[in-house]
């Protein structure tokens, strides 16, 4: 029995300790926004936050997340939209959408650490693969959120 904190809630799941976090989230907690892509930590479709860091949940054993805070796309913004999700809608980032929840989770972790990323910062952090080729709009949306939170911070100051 593993105790996991996912999206602010405590869960007990009866699974093998080596079952990847991805499959616990999808098959046992019903969080289907987390996607299986490659299964070998390459594509990033399965990206979730563990204690704020973006991880590829397809290769993280569930037991490694015990005692840590796991956040998925479903819990990124409690009851509303994260600024990145709003920007994703505004800039019409997704095409098929399969990789996009992982993209958004990677971008959210990037902005939490680097509020005003350069193109190079974005390229370094956003290693998620998108076969529709949405990369230019991903970058646009991240810059848009960085710019609007910078101007909001300036207004407060």
């Amino acid at each position: 029995m593993l105790k996991l904190n996912v999206n602010g809630k405590q869960h007990q799941v009866d699974v093998e300790p080596d079952m990847p976090l991805l499959w616990v989230l999808r098959d046992h907690l019903g969080l289907l926004g987390v996607k299986y892509g490659c299964g070998v930590a390459l594509c990033g479709a399965c990206t979730v936050h563990v204690d704020g860091a973006p991880v590829r949940s397809c290769v993280v054993p569930a037991s490694a997340a015990v005692g840590k805070a796991v956040v998925t796309i479903e819990g990124l913004a409690a009851g509303g939209l994260h600024p990145l999700q709003e920007a994703w809608i505004e800039h019409e980032v997704p095409q098929c959408g399969y990789c996009q929840t992982g993209m958004i989770m990677s971008a959210a972790a990037l902005l939490a650490k680097t509020p005003k990323p350069s193109d190079a910062d974005i390229d370094r952090a956003m290693t998620n693969l998108c076969r529709c080729g949405t990369y230019t709009r991903v970058r646009e949306a991240i810059h848009a959120v960085a710019a609007s939170s910078a101007s909001a911070a300036a207004k407060k100051a």
Binding site: L32, G33, T72, I73, L81, Q85, I89, P94, G97, T101
Partner: peptide
């Protein structure tokens, strides 16, 4: 029209 659902991870693939 499909984008709001897609940024929430809601579409059923």
């Amino acid at each position: 029209l499909d984008i709001p659902d897609k940024v929430m991870g809601r579409p059923v693939f």
